[in-house]
Design a protein around this nucleic acid. Structure first.
Length: 255
DNA sequence: ATGGCTTGAGTGTCAAGA
């Protein structure tokens, strides 16, 4: 079984990349973030023609999350249960017996801003919900754009980024607390090296110089950890014309 | 460089991303 996450930075622009990628990388579930479109614009028909079902929680211009799968998509849930929010950042479903949560975590803009405060409050509510989901679902995967680089190996310039948004101590602690609920950063189960990123700034030739951050993650419960065979970051789509600034992250499970 | 690029909105130019 393969699970993947990809922040596409506008599905309207990126649909050809997504369809090509799915054709080359058949997965059991693909979680998208930043679709940036209302449900009425979501390309259900194009995905269906490619053999995929989909669920979407979208809005105009910003945010928006989707789960795409060739299998039945069951027990669908939208939004955090205890956090009043107009922003479409959460969608979850059960696929082949695995609870799949897709999260587009708040960016936070800059430390000390209102948006940063909103990020920390959002993460606190996210923590509470993940805790309850873990008790309800033994096989749980929490995929998405976390907008947090967990440690200095995940940042191309730790000194320059010190205490900045995406790497600040409160954000890293929030990520750590979520792991401490009983989840594992699947990438780190299989790879210890630094310099492996999932996002590169469009500006300043970030990708060519490998100046990036690892902020897209697939967290898995103990029951899935025992099945985990590999987690990889696919940099191929980042090299295409008009790419998303994020690369897909793919988890392979046995069975 | 409170920068650099990309997207959506909407037709002039800004907000937001990370």
């Amino acid at each position: 079984m393969k699970l993947a996450t990809w922040n596409v930075n506008s599905l309207n622009v990126r649909l050809p990349h997504v369809l090509d990628w799915l054709a080359q990388n058949p997965v059991d579930a693909l979680c998208l973030q930043e679709t940036k479109q209302e449900d009425s614009k979501f390309p259900y028909a194009e995905l269906e023609a490619a053999g995929y079902k989909a669920i979407h929680s979208g809005q105009k211009t910003y945010n928006g999350v989707a789960i795409i799968s060739p299998h039945a998509i069951e027990e669908v849930q939208f939004d955090l249960p205890d956090f009043s929010d107009e922003q479409k950042r959460i969608i979850a479903a059960t696929i082949n017996g695995v609870r799949v949560i897709n999260a587009y975590v708040v960016n936070g803009q800059a430390v000390g801003t209102e948006k940063y405060d909103y990020k920390l409050r959002w993460l606190a509510s996210f923590y509470d919900w993940i805790k309850s989901e873990l008790t309800a679902h033994e096989k749980l995967a929490v995929l998405g754009d976390y907008n947090i680089a967990p440690d200095d190996r995940d940042c191309y310039d730790p000194a320059g980024w010190k205490d900045k948004v995406l790497v600040s101590k409160p954000e890293r602690e929030a990520f750590e607390y979520i792991l401490n609920l009983g989840l594992y950063d699947s990438y780190r189960l299989h790879h210890e090296d630094a310099g492996q990123y999932s996002w590169w700034d469009y500006r300043s030739g970030g990708f060519k110089r490998n100046q990036g951050l690892r902020i897209d993650h697939i967290l898995i419960s103990e029951a899935l950890k025992t099945l985990s065979e590999d987690c990889m970051i696919d940099t191929a789509p980042r090299q295409l014309e008009r790419p998303s600034d994020h690369a897909p992250v793919v988890l392979t499970l046995s069975n």
